[in-house]
Amino acid sequence: MSTFKYVLLTCGFLLVTFVVNADELTDRIEEIMAAPVDQDYAAYLAEGCTSCHQAKQGTGTPVIAGMAKQHIVISLLLYQNGTRVNAAMKSIAIGLGDEEIASLAEYFSQLVESQ
């Protein structure tokens, strides 16, 4: 196989992988967005987040109170799959199932950032 064909095949493979992964991600986002949420469980899980995430904007960690639900879902999934890079967030995200991601996203999206 010539080098050109090899590069072409490799690029094609990467493209297909990307599209398939993107599709899988989109499906998962939709499933999580539609998942039922237990408010008490969400509040319990959220207590773990508020050890680092402040209620109002300061230095370092971002405010997640009031963030759009879909944005939180996508962020956690991207930390899970390593696309977004932060060791502490990846450590937390890889232990979250769909129900937990849905609960946290719902909970924080309902909060209002403190002034």
Binding site: T50, S51, Q54
Partner: peptide
């Protein structure tokens, strides 16, 4: 630097909690 700033954010959030 990001880690150092993250620690500052944690301190504020932690003491708030």
């Amino acid at each position: 630097l990001a880690t150092a700033m993250e620690a500052d954010g944690w301190y504020e959030a932690m003491t708030s909690s």
